[in-house]
Computed example of a mutant assay.
Amino acid sequence: MGKSISFGILISFIFSIASAQEISPYGKFLKDSIMVGEEVQYSLSVKYPLDWYVVFPDSTNNFGPFEYYNKTFFPTRTDSTHAFDSAVYTFSSFEVDLVQRLQAPIYLLNGKDSTTILANPDSVFLKELVTVMPDSLQFIENVDYQEVHYAFNYPYLMIGLGVFLVLLIGNYFIFGNTIRRKIKLYRMRKAYEKFSLEFERGIIKIKQSETNAQLIEEILVTWKKYMEKIEDRPFTKYTSKEILRVGFEKELKTVLQTIDRSIYGAIGDEEMHKNFEALEDFTLERYQTKIKEVKHG
């Protein structure tokens, strides 16, 4: 058994080295310098054999020191032996390093495993708005007389605040749990209404463009952000496989696999909106379950 595991690890290592040597992702910033918080585009492309399955990083990837905004993915181009994929990412940075570098990854899928292959490093320069600091500061004196009014009665104010605090603390101990529960239920309801409206608009857009991979990914991220709130789990950092492992495989396996194929494999589904409608139904059930837990908790 130990020999089989060691042999499998050796084969995987050899495949990773061979893969990294055969393909070379190319990443480049589309301008040389930026200011703090300014958006910058980054191009990532790769050429690979037709029988390979390559996945580009999405919004869940760590692109530090840059913040991810969006991604534009272009259709795959092929010839008799190779395929060519490319995407343009929009980032911004709030770091103050004068030179900021990025080496984006791509992922080569191999059965249940994946191999990370890094693109060439590229960098942008930070534009400095303040280049020279003065040695000293000059202050302007103002010695004009300023009249001060003392009409306000502060002792009465302090007495009033004291009475108010006593009443507030008393109400907190008597009705605290009920108040907190109602506040939480109100916030949950408002958050769900906001999500439901945004998600429904996304489904309408998907009905108009069932195979738009970028749109599908954006709506999926909207769903993950809401699920992260009600489930208190990092859904935005989870892959679909990790989401299924936390206990939702029965409800979401087919739906998430179909969505992933459309995003990462460019395999369209003319009824993609039905998968998002299934996500919408599932989310409503989870919301109702959480509401009951808060009411009776």
Score class of each variant (00 low, 15 high):
1 M>C: 11
4 S>A: 10
7 F>L: 14
13 F>I: 12
15 F>V: 12
17 I>Y: 07
17 I>H: 12
29 F>H: 05
30 L>Y: 05
31 K>P: 14
38 E>T: 04
42 Y>F: 03
48 Y>R: 11
50 L>Y: 07
54 V>F: 03
57 P>G: 04
80 S>F: 03
82 H>Q: 08
85 D>K: 15
86 S>E: 09
86 S>Q: 12
87 A>I: 04
90 T>F: 03
94 F>Y: 11
94 F>Q: 01
95 E>R: 14
95 E>V: 07
99 V>H: 12
104 A>S: 05
105 P>T: 03
105 P>H: 09
106 I>R: 05
107 Y>W: 04
110 N>M: 05
115 T>C: 05
117 I>S: 02
127 K>Y: 00
130 V>P: 01
132 V>S: 12
133 M>Q: 13
133 M>P: 09
155 P>W: 15
157 L>R: 10
166 V>K: 00
177 N>H: 08
178 T>G: 00
185 L>Y: 03
187 R>H: 05
189 R>E: 10
189 R>L: 09
192 Y>D: 01
194 K>V: 06
195 F>N: 04
208 Q>D: 13
213 A>N: 08
216 I>R: 07
218 E>F: 09
224 K>V: 00
224 K>F: 01
226 Y>V: 01
230 I>V: 15
231 E>R: 04
239 T>H: 04
248 F>Y: 13
268 G>Y: 02
277 E>F: 09
278 A>K: 13
278 A>H: 13
281 D>E: 10
283 T>Q: 07
283 T>W: 03
287 Y>F: 13
288 Q>F: 03
288 Q>Y: 12
292 K>H: 14
293 E>K: 15
294 V>Y: 11
